[in-house]
C-alpha cells in the first residue's frame, strides 16, 4: 500500500538518493571556504580594480584624483596648521607629525567606513553569483591598500619638501614593516565592519562618530603622551593599534629614533589577531549576506 494524504488522495513518493546532493546555501567548513576563496583570487583582484576606478569615473580629471585628493588633503592641513595657526604645540616638525598622522590614519578609517559599506555596494554581485562572500570585503581591503600607493608618495614628498625637512635615514628601512602590519590589521577591520553593519544597519549611522573618536584617541593631531595625564587612561590609549602605527612611523620617518619594542609588540599582536578573528567572524555569517 502506498502512503496517502488524510483526504485519501495517493501521494507521489520520491525516494531521492542524496549521495550526490548537498544542502544549498550552507556555509562550507573553514578549510573548504579558504580553498574556494583561493579559487576566486582573480575575481578579488578584478573586483578591487573595478571599484578603485569607479569612484573617479564621473570626474573630468579621472585618475588624477588618486593622487590629487591626498595632495589636497595635505595642502589643507599645511595651510591651516603650518601657515595660519603656526601651531607646533611643542612638537618637533609639527607639520610632518600632522601629515603622517592624517595620511596613515586615513587608511584605517577608510577601511572601517568602506568595509561597512562593502556588502551593500557589492550586493548585485552577491545576489547574482555564488562565490565566497569574503571576496567582496577582501577586494575592498586590497583596493584600499593600492590606493595607499599614491597617498604614501605624496606624504613622503611633502615631509621632505616642507620645512623643517625630514631627513632620509636608515630607520626608513623599517617603515614598510609598519605598513604591512597596519595593512593586516585593516583587513580584519574591513571584515568585522562588513558583517557588523550588515547585521545591524543602525551601526552605519554611528560610524562617523566612532571613527572621529578613534582619530582623537590615536593622537593624529596632538601628542597623547603630553596631554593625557591620567596614567591608566594613557596605558589604555597606548594599546590602540592606530596610535602604535602613528608613533612608530613618526619615530622612524621624522625623529630617526628606534620605536619602543612595546609599540611594535602591541601592533604586531593586533595585526596577527584581528584578520584571523575577523575572517572567522565573517565566515560564520556567510549564509546571511544574500538576504534582502
Amino acid at each position: 500500500m502506498s502512503p496517502s494524504t488524510s483526504a485519501g488522495v495517493p501521494l507521489v513518493v520520491e525516494d531521492v538518493d542524496v549521495s550526490r546532493l548537498r544542502p544549498v546555501g550552507r556555509r562550507p567548513n573553514i578549510a573548504r571556504y579558504i580553498a574556494n576563496l583561493w579559487g576566486r583570487r582573480h575575481f578579488i583582484v578584478a573586483d578591487s580594480r573595478v571599484r578603485a576606478l569607479s569612484g573617479e569615473r564621473d570626474t573630468i580629471l579621472g585618475r588624477f584624483w588618486l593622487v590629487g585628493r591626498p595632495l589636497l588633503d595635505g595642502v589643507t592641513f599645511f595651510l591651516i596648521f603650518g601657515v595660519l595657526l603656526n601651531a607646533s604645540r611643542g612638537i618637533d616638525n609639527y607639520i610632518g607629525f600632522l601629515l603622517i598622522g592624517v595620511f596613515l590614519f586615513t587608511w584605517t578609517s577608510q577601511s572601517l567606513t568602506q568595509g561597512a559599506a562593502s556588502l551593500n555596494s557589492g550586493r548585485n554581485l552577491i545576489r547574482g553569483f555564488a562565490f565566497p562572500r569574503a571576496s567582496i570585503p577582501l577586494a575592498l581591503a586590497l583596493r584600499e591598500a593600492i590606493a595607499m600607493g599614491p597617498r604614501l608618495l605624496t606624504l613622503v614628498a611633502m615631509i621632505l619638501v616642507i620645512p623643517p625637512h625630514a631627513q632620509i635615514s636608515w630607520y626608513w628601512v623599517l617603515f614598510p614593516g609598519v605598513l604591512v602590519l597596519q595593512g593586516m590589521f585593516n583587513v580584519g577591520v574591513v571584515l568585522y565592519a562588513a558583517r557588523l553593519v550588515h547585521a545591524v544597519p543602525d551601526l552605519r549611522l554611528l560610524l562617523g562618530f566612532s571613527s572621529r573618536l578613534w582619530m582623537y584617541g590615536s593622537g593624529v593631531m596632538y601628542s597623547i603622551d603630553r596631554f593625557v595625564e591620567h596614567p591608566q587612561a594613557l596605558a589604555v590609549m597606548q594599546l590602540n593599534p592606530a596610535y602604535c602605527v602613528l608613533e612608530i612611523s613618526r619615530d622612524l620617518l621624522l625623529y630617526a629614533t628606534l620605536p619602543e619594542p612595546r609599540l611594535w609588540l602591541t601592533l604586531a599582536a593586533w595585526a596577527a589577531a584581528t584578520p584571523v578573528l575577523g575572517f572567522l567572524y565573517f565566515w560564520q555569517g556567510e549564509e546571511e549576506y544574500g538576504r534582502e
Binding site: 501521494l11 520520491e14 549521495s19
Partner: peptide, 11 residues
Amino acid sequence: RATLVRHEDPK
C-alpha cells in the same frame, strides 16, 4: 498529487 520526498543515502 502531493509529493512525499524521502532522502536516502545508499552509502
